[in-house]
Amino acid sequence: MKTTMTARIGYSLLNVIVIVCLLFPFFWMITASFKSQLQILNPDYLFKFTPTLKNYVSVFEDYDYLKYITSSFVVATLSTLGSLVLGLPAAYAIAKYKMHNLSLIILVAKILPGISYLVPWYVIFNKMHLIDTYIGLIMSHMVIGLPFIMWIMIPFFSSFPREIEESSWIDGSSKIRTFVQMVLPVSLPGIITSSLLAFIFSWNNFMFSFVLAGEKTKTLPIAVYNFMGGTSINWGALMAAACIITLPVIIIAMLAQKYVVSGLSAGAVKG
């Protein structure tokens, strides 16, 4: 096939336009986080400015961000682990014993809006003194992580060859042992994909934490949102805080690019 010069230039130009559109809000967020309030307010400093670390220092010194980062990390890690512990065996049972009626649960959990759980949770958690506790937050985030992990893992386990498991059973291994020692190690790529995304979903979660977390367990997205209160917004510090939440997610996504893309579009291509 011949590609004319104009077609090639046009293609590159479209390339550039798409990339600029995708990236400019991130560019804006990062540059603003290194500017002083005055530089943000003045368009002359749009591209030319001397970067300052003042916003980052202020985020950690004046606003105690280390505490929120810890909270977010604890909740995201433990809710992902919890979802794996409950979700992996369940996904395996659905895949191997053809309990596909039960996979309907995943669909329902995906369709229902998060807020529909939040009203009853708030009432029940209040009675059980679970508001502003890690347990309450972790359980709420597991409601997102668990169906997601099952959704990714069911096709994974379905494609696992039955003969390998059967030979292991004949050798006298119990079914639980076969699952832990043979099935899980082979399914590692799927487990990694689903865990990374479950971690990101929990890390990013706003609505559940907004209602269920309090001063003791406040997570990053809520801390950043609360930052906006008051009459004048400290944009530099706000953008520094936004960078701090987003950075880990972007690093995870870049490192595990292949897995994340397939995880985000899983199941879609098969229809």
């Binding site: 943000i40 890390w203 706003f206 936004a242 972007i250």
Partner: peptide
């Protein structure tokens, strides 16, 4: 490009909201 396309989807929605709040700011926004 595929990697870059992934970024808006995984970035924390609250920070995305705040960046756009700054972009749309009537007096200083981009």
């Amino acid at each position: 490009i595929k990697t870059m396309m992934m970024l808006p989807m995984v970035a924390t929605p609250v920070s995305i909201g705040l960046v756009w709040l700054l972009i749309y700011e009537p007096s200083i926004g981009l």
